[in-house]
Write a protein that binds this DNA or RNA. Structure first.
Lengths: 213, 213
DNA sequence: GTCTATAGTAGGATAGAC
DNA sequence: GTCTATCCTACTATAGAC
């Protein structure tokens, strides 16, 4: 067999891209290293030369995805107008890693991918929280919010939302999800000390006419 | 080899107990199904008759642990005195699943186990949140806290704390952990609308003399 | 240093005899 | 329900070509 020598970065990127495609198309656990090799026409030794385990390859794929997603969100923020609250709304409604472009979620929401999913969330949180924090900071300056710890508050909100509403972590029942979603706006408003109602847009069925029991 | 026939529940319990012991003693990943079989003197087919994967066996072990831990916390609450805040303090400082008894969590605190780890946290959260919620409710009646959604608020707090401070999910740096821990009391106080300082006991170095910059 | 090829080990998982 | 035999795949080892 003939040899194709590539620059290390290029080869590495090839492998990550191929693996990402396969992981997304199928199931991480069911995708074999052999599959990845075959789809690139390279030898086993090559892949293990760059990634010392399947797990390490997964890590690189995750990093790739998070990087792409974060850049997209970054550009969304820069393109958005209005006060901090309006920008946050843009970011939240449009720029979720889940909604973005891929069917990744479908794939991640399978038992075999729980680990990948969690790590993706953690990596995404770490990269995205600063984005939110900047908007929270801006909101404080505008008098909309009040907090001394914009970053930590952002992290806390993201963590809570992701952990409690993401189907990839636990098979929450629809009732549980509904219950949590409805409580969310108030929880966020409390954390940011924002006007009641500021985050009402988050609620799924905008219960305008509901009465407190 | 002679065959020993046992009642299904008994056999199952045997396997879970043996696996738990081995997982705790060594490393989940390094413990082989062979090890579990050997320690019981049974065949591989038998273990797979009860658990269709190693992962499922781990799940059972974890459920075992969560159940035990939750009961322990329950009894702690019942034995504690004072107002809701004092009871909460007892619960938080004494009754963490992590501190309790096992090193199995140490094992879960590795990248490869992120999925399992998260599921443990989710399972623990679902079982323990009601415990906290009851205390929050009590605190509301005592005028210490103010919330219409004690359960959701408890879930949110537990999720945030677990996700952001648990090493099993992401290898957070010590600085990051410190930063988050210090912000935590205020975040919780905001969520519960509690007196500032109520949860200061959570901070690792109780910074009594720190000034806000 | 980068890549191919191949043979082999270990351990998770399954089929089918009993 | 239990056991035995076998399979599948992540991973290692090695030998060698560019």
């Amino acid at each position: 067999m003939s040899r194709t020598v590539k620059k290390p970065e290029e080869r590495r990127a090839d492998i990550v891209r191929a693996a990402r495609r396969l992981f997304q198309a199928g199931d991480y656990e069911q995708t074999t290293m052999q599959d990845v090799m075959n789809s690139l026409g390279i030898a086993k030794g090559t892949i293990y030369y760059y990634f010392s385990s399947k797990e390490e390859l997964l890590e690189a794929v995750i990093e790739d995805m998070v990087e792409e997603s974060t850049q997209h969100m970054q550009s969304l923020v820069e393109a958005s107008h209005g006060n901090a609250l309006e920008k946050l709304r843009t970011l939240i409604t449009a720029g979720n890693i889940a909604d973005e472009n891929d069917e990744i979620l479908e794939q991640l929401h399978r038992p075999g991918n729980a680990g990948m999913h969690t790590r993706l969330l953690a990596a995404a949180l770490q990269k995205q929280a600063p984005l939110y924090a900047r908007l929270v900071q801006q909101g404080c300056e505008e008098g909309l919010f009040h907090t001394d710890t914009p970053l930590e508050t952002s992290e806390f909100i993201l963590a809570g939302v992701q952990f409690l509403t993401d189907q990839g972590i636990h098979a929450w029942t629809p009732e549980t999800l509904m219950r949590r979603s409805q409580a969310l706006p108030t929880l966020i408003e409390n954390l940011l000390k924002a006007q009641p109602g500021s985050f009402q847009f988050l609620s799924p069925d905008t219960p305008e006419e509901r009465e407190t029991k």
